[in-house]
Computed example of a mutant assay.
Amino acid sequence: MSNQTQTVDPKKQSSNRMVAGMCVAFVGGMVGMAYAAVPLYAMFCQITGYGGTTQRVEQYSDKILDREITVRFDANVSGGLPWDFQPVARDVQIKIGETKQIHYTATNTFDTPTQGRATFNVTPEIAGAYFNKVECFCFTDTTLKPGETLDMPVVFFVDPEIVNLPEMKDVKTITLSYTFFPIAGEKPVAVAPKVDGEANNVNSDEKAGG
């Protein structure tokens, strides 16, 4: 019985290597896209105002319309952060294109320093691309000492181009909402106050049981 040597087609071998290379490149591309998804999505929201993301600008509006709109301010605290967070005024009425400064305050009600960071959004969401902030405290790590109150200004204007949106034709109010979250690892843990005589009772029980 004779042994037969199988001959591999060089073209087929080259084709297999090409397919394998394409698979590796595809997997690598998917991994890279997964890592880039979050910052790319954040950039997309910042540019387009998608999801009610407001715009950050460096200059004031050079055009003010003879048309007013009401801006309401909302404040929230999440994740157990022990802060009293409130807008100084609940709403203001401004002309579209007019630059306005408003204020929020935050007070640490805990007995140790705590840290928080704020996120924000605008409703209706379509207004986010036209709500321009010149100054704000969002995405900034903020530390408050026990009992400390911090004044946090926000400078903003509503882009006059918003009047060209058919969806905003009958909208008279925009709401700017902030939510403060504790920074990871900084969530305070409440300690229950000791009751008078508690330590003595514990010691007595231990002695009795021993």
Rank of each mutant, 00 (worst) to 15 (best):
2 S>G: 10
2 S>T: 10
4 Q>V: 10
6 Q>C: 08
12 K>A: 09
12 K>R: 11
13 Q>N: 10
14 S>C: 02
14 S>H: 06
17 R>P: 03
19 V>C: 09
19 V>W: 12
19 V>S: 11
21 G>E: 10
21 G>A: 06
21 G>D: 11
26 F>K: 01
27 V>F: 08
29 G>M: 05
32 G>S: 09
33 M>P: 05
34 A>S: 14
36 A>I: 02
38 V>S: 13
39 P>S: 04
45 C>N: 12
47 I>G: 03
49 G>I: 00
49 G>L: 01
51 G>M: 01
53 T>H: 07
54 T>P: 11
55 Q>G: 01
55 Q>R: 14
57 V>K: 12
61 S>D: 07
62 D>E: 15
62 D>Y: 09
64 I>T: 15
68 E>S: 14
68 E>K: 14
74 D>S: 15
77 V>Q: 11
81 L>D: 03
84 D>E: 10
87 P>A: 01
91 D>A: 13
92 V>I: 09
93 Q>A: 06
96 I>P: 00
101 Q>K: 14
104 Y>H: 06
104 Y>M: 03
108 N>D: 14
110 F>N: 07
113 P>V: 00
114 T>A: 02
116 G>S: 05
117 R>P: 00
123 T>H: 06
125 E>G: 06
126 I>V: 15
128 G>Q: 04
130 Y>Q: 09
133 K>D: 02
138 C>W: 01
142 T>W: 03
146 P>I: 00
146 P>C: 03
146 P>V: 01
149 T>M: 07
151 D>L: 13
152 M>E: 05
153 P>G: 13
155 V>F: 12
157 F>T: 01
157 F>E: 00
158 V>P: 01
166 P>R: 08
168 M>V: 09
173 T>L: 11
176 L>T: 02
179 T>I: 06
182 P>V: 02
184 A>H: 05
187 K>H: 10
189 V>G: 15
190 A>D: 15
196 D>F: 04
197 G>E: 13
198 E>L: 10
200 N>F: 08
200 N>D: 15
202 V>E: 15
204 S>Q: 13
205 D>A: 15
206 E>R: 11
208 A>I: 03
209 G>H: 13
210 G>L: 13
210 G>S: 14
